[in-house]
Amino acid sequence: MGLDAEMMSSNEIHSFEGEAENDKDFMGIYIGGRNNIKQRHGKGWAIFPNGDQYDGDYVNGQRHGIGLYVFQNGARYLGQYRRGQKSGKGIFFYPDGSIYDGNWQKNLRHGSGIYTYANEDIYDGNWHKGLRHGLGCYIFKNETAVFRGTWIQGIPVGSMEIDFQIYKYHGNYDYQYPQGPGIFSFMSKYMLSGYYKSESINLLKEEIIEGNDIENISEKFQNNKHPKLLENVLSPPLWYSQTVSKYDFSKLPQKSMLWDLSDSEYSTCDFSFNESEINEFTMKEPEPFEQEECETECEPNASKSIVSTE
């Protein structure tokens, strides 16, 4: 249907999202507060040996709270940290001009977030451990089309709707292309029913799904290492028309819905946590440092700003 299927299945995992280690074996320049056992604590600015910089909150030697991390290659992250890792709300600016603005957990995009690509395409939806997963909306800038559907581990799968402004397609996505029964609706006046069919998709489903290899679908699909993929490169499906009728909303396929975690272990659309999990991953003000017993003469130095190269 003219859409860039490769962009729909890519997941923007960047090696430069990794940051320099915290205080352990730290060598470089640091200006800021320290606690009474010389760990970075409170507001601070650090310049790492690789040229990266961090300006923000520390607690007991770890980035914790709000901070700005600037990479030597021009990438930068502004947002929340938890125990030395990007967790909570944050925005990441990539060297190629793309931007991610949303939720993070343990240095990975996780939860809801908006990814704006260098070519101005936009993905707005759910993420799980760095991959698009769950409900999402992909906006194609050049084709002026909007894809609404579900992803599993970075791959569009399941019910979906593609809005081309003057007409829409309602159906199902199976890995890289639409598959099975579907309906084209034209300005809510007429409907064309039919189905998409691709033999290579059927071969892929037999080999991967029946082989219970779901956990590695994303990696094998994107890296093209699966034996069936090597033999049968995925080809675009063919459309087979059946009937033309007046528009009837009740005949349209069911739209994508939030998945309950009990229905699919791969779904992360329901991000409800118990109280202990909320305390674990919800960002708050940096926790106060619980001071250990200390001689009187060292207490005045506990919160003093210090410039050091250790």
Rank of each mutant, 00 (worst) to 15 (best):
E19Y: 06
N73K: 13
Y117W: 14
V146L: 13
N119V: 11
K168I: 05
E297C: 06
S112Q: 15
P236H: 15
F281G: 00
S200Q: 14
P181E: 10
H110S: 10
R34M: 12
P178S: 02
N279V: 04
Y94L: 14
L229F: 10
P49G: 14
S159P: 05
Q153C: 13
M257W: 09
I208R: 05
E277F: 10
F147S: 02
D23E: 13
N301P: 00
S200F: 08
R63Y: 00
R76P: 02
G88D: 10
I31C: 12
G44I: 03
L78I: 10
G171L: 04
H170G: 01
N172L: 09
N142H: 06
S267Y: 04
E290L: 06
H64E: 11
R34Q: 15
S112E: 09
Q153N: 14
M27I: 05
K106D: 07
L3I: 14
G171F: 03
Y30H: 01
K197R: 10
G90K: 11
C269A: 11
S250D: 05
G28T: 03
D124L: 13
E219D: 12
Y196S: 06
L192I: 01
E219C: 07
D25C: 10
L68E: 05
I278H: 11
H128T: 02
D96W: 09
Y58N: 01
Y81E: 01
V59G: 02
E206Y: 09
E275I: 12
G84Q: 05
K255R: 15
F92Y: 15
G194C: 07
K89H: 12
G154A: 13
L203I: 06
I201L: 15
G134P: 00
D163F: 10
S305D: 12
E219T: 11
R82Y: 02
K197Q: 12
G33C: 01
E297F: 09
K225P: 00
L238W: 07
A75N: 09
K225S: 11
T243K: 11
K220M: 13
P227W: 09
L78Q: 15
Y138E: 00
V59I: 07
S188F: 14
F147V: 02
C294E: 13
G44K: 08
A5S: 13
A20W: 01
Y195W: 07
G51L: 04
P236C: 13
N35C: 06
Q53H: 08
I214Y: 14
T268W: 03
H133V: 04
Y190P: 00
K197F: 07
S256V: 14
E215Q: 11
D96Q: 02
M1R: 10
S276M: 03
A75P: 09
D101W: 13
Y266G: 10
G88Q: 08
G33H: 07
L252D: 01
T116D: 00
T150N: 08
A20C: 03
W45F: 15
E297V: 11
S256H: 06
G171Y: 05
R34A: 08
S10I: 05
K255L: 14
E21F: 08
Y177F: 15
G51C: 03
M8A: 12
Q105T: 01
E215M: 11
Y177I: 07
F221P: 04
F93N: 04
L108S: 06
E310Q: 05
G2Y: 07
F71P: 00
Y117C: 12
